[in-house]
Design a binder for these strands. Structure first.
Lengths: 248, 248
DNA sequence: ACGTATTTGTTCGTATGTATC
DNA sequence: GGATACATACGAACAAATACG
């Protein structure tokens, strides 16, 4: 709204008008243009500005409320939810356990599935092993707080880390499980960031609607000597989290 | 498919089966599990594995093709597009012009819209100006190659950069336009990364379907002395691009 | 040059559920 | 409640391009 107004709306388009308003307001709120705690314009004012019926505005606002972005108070107005997004900082110490620390949460990883597959070319390059070498693949759900969670796929060289899945199941933490394999310190080397629609089972586990996009981090962690430890995909819901990169 | 198979499908769910297959294959391709140039299983084989009709598979594949992820050749098969994703590297020299250099493209920014608005609290903090101070807001589309593009919102302090929009229109580049204001060197300080569904006009300009999510970078660029120059949102389609962060 | 198998591309038809008026 | 339109999913058949012996 600060940028423009009803010109944004496409009537007779393939997208319903209420959804356009929803994404529009989502942009404003998530980007911080409207600060947490601030009051939104009234439904009546929205309907005037966008040139739509008040009911159409209400559909959009109801969805924002359902996603936890706003809270409606009868007789007062609609307010942006109090807390801003949690920042997942990308630096060489980037780990999920670092996020858990912010919430004083104990390691609470849950092992969803374990499988094996041969290393594809890309993963083999990252782990500096032979293409086709057997990999141990884990799917884990790690939750620090409501809405603060990741669904991760970890790829380990099977020959080196056989049984790591049971160690994780016992300790609920990769950091601690890896310690049993002599890996006491590891750091993040490179991270690739992508986004997509979640798979049904990911959305289920993360407890988010299947239509809301998620961030995907792909990264390699290595030990002090630069030797690769594992390759990972982490699916991150963005309703209450953002990634942050500082380039000092 | 390497991780699991038809168990992934949710029948009678709110999400169509073809979309589930689409996201599934998108994951495999974009994450590099299936390498560029590789041949996908045949439509018949997919329909067997997923337990669906061949038409259903074709809908998914058609969408992947439209997004440029795969290329179908009659009589041969469907192949993952030859080139891997372009990496937009996040470091202190992160600029769109750096991406353009990779394609030997001349600056080709197009000014979509210009507006003004008062600085919200968050923007005021980033630019270290007073809340409510007038801002110059530009919307630009910058294309380096097919699918390699950004739709950006730039927020400038109006008092300092009045007329910058016309300078950009003339020079097609912020780097060059800012030089006329005595800003010869600027670097990236912090970046926040989020993702969402694009606005209709963003999807139009970037030539992507309205349902495919986009990455959003929010960042502050500053001059050599650490003085903020501008705040920006950049919308990045991810069919052919990923962000990359190196944490050395 | 020919026949065959494989694979994508296209066109019918049928059924079902959902949204809309 | 009824009528309509649309999206989803399945089935069968055929056309066209490719590969191979």
């Amino acid at each position: 709204m600060s940028l423009d107004d009803a010109r944004l709306l496409q009537r007779n388009a393939q997208i319903p008008v209420w959804r356009q308003i929803e994404t529009d307001l989502t942009v404003e709120i998530r980007s911080g243009l409207i600060a947490p705690g601030e009051k939104l314009p009234s439904e009546h004012e929205f309907s005037q500005r966008y040139g739509v019926n008040r009911h159409t505005v209400r559909v959009a606002l109801a969805r924002l409320a359902r996603n936890g972005l706003v809270v409606a108070v009868q007789g007062k107005g609609v307010f942006v939810s109090g807390t801003g997004p949690v920042e997942y900082r990308l630096n060489k110490d980037a780990k999920w356990s670092e996020v858990e620390k912010q919430f004083a949460a104990s390691p609470g990883g849950r092992l969803i599935a374990v499988s094996e597959c041969p290393a594809t070319r890309r993963i083999a390059e990252h782990l500096r092993i032979d293409e086709g070498a057997p990999l141990l693949v884990t799917e884990t759900l790690r939750v620090a707080s409501a809405g603060i969670a990741t669904y991760s796929y970890h790829f380990f060289e099977k020959a080196r880390f056989a049984g790591l899945d049971t160690a994780f199941e016992r300790l609920s933490s990769f950091t601690e499980a890896l310690a049993e394999y002599g890996v006491t310190d590891f750091t993040r080397a490179s991270t690739w960031i992508d986004c997509r629609i979640p798979r049904p089972r990911e959305a289920d586990a993360l407890d988010i609607p299947v239509e809301t996009p998620v961030l995907v981090m792909m990264y390699v962690d290595q030990d002090r000597d630069g030797r690769p430890i594992f390759f990972s995909h982490s699916v991150i819901p963005t309703t209450r989290m953002v990634l942050r990169v500082d380039t000092a």
